[in-house]
Amino acid sequence: MSQVEQKEVDRSGMEVSDETAIEIINMNKWYGDFHVLKDINMVVNRGERIVVCGPSGSGKSTLIRCINRLEEHQKGDIIVDGTELSSDLKNIDKIRSEVGMVFQHFNLFPHLSILENCTLAPIWVRKTPKKEAEEIAMHFLEKVKIPEQALKYPGQLSGGQQQRVAIARSLCMKPRIMLFDEPTSALDPEMIAEVLDTMVQLAEEGMTMIVVTHEMGFARKVANRVVFMDQGQIVEQNSPEQFFDNPQSERTQLFLSQILGH
């Protein structure tokens, strides 16, 4: 978990504005009778980088999946970029096109080339002309350092490369917020670093990010807030320094001793 620690992180671009990007008020979610998320309250400002951690089954993935309506919440409000998430399909599609998401298993489209993966949504959702979309895609593929793979298919790339393509694909929509759902959990240790580097770079440019991850090195270096969840509730949130060096709740202390202790 120390892949990013060797490198110095440039925090100059990481300014947090007072503007609210996401506001979650008293949000509750059930799977059938099972109460997965309980009274979640959270405000994310523009430019903030939040790391969400916690034991498996604590609801952290479900929480960020609610933000772009991959999961429906039953009670409370979620306001993304000033738009309230309701069952109105127009609002949902609008929010989804403003919020990028990177998945644990990449979820690239295997039948399309890397370039087509990146241009599909800009062309069909944003109505960007094909040529312009390809230029944007190449720009972001260069940024994640794999422009030479543009004409290959996802199946021909390594896991780390696929995940970087997935990040580029989201960035091509020029999102204002990026969600990462355990982006390095399915990767070999050697490839975790290249993906984390890309994410650090993104943070340095001031992207609003919510990252569900177990990479505590990343959290310490990049996050300006760490949120710890357990049993569907936010147990503790604090600055990384406070969170790691001086955890308040017993549950957090136990969790940290378990994942940092070996």
């Binding site: 772009n68 991959l70 998401m101 489209f109 039948h111 599909l120 949504a121 069909w124």
Partner: peptide, 24 residues
Amino acid sequence: GQYEAADALGLDYWKSMRLIIMPQ
């Protein structure tokens, strides 16, 4: 994950069916 990725990019139902789901 294919459905979710298509949704997360903001494709509506018919576009995600036509461009992502049906071809595969």
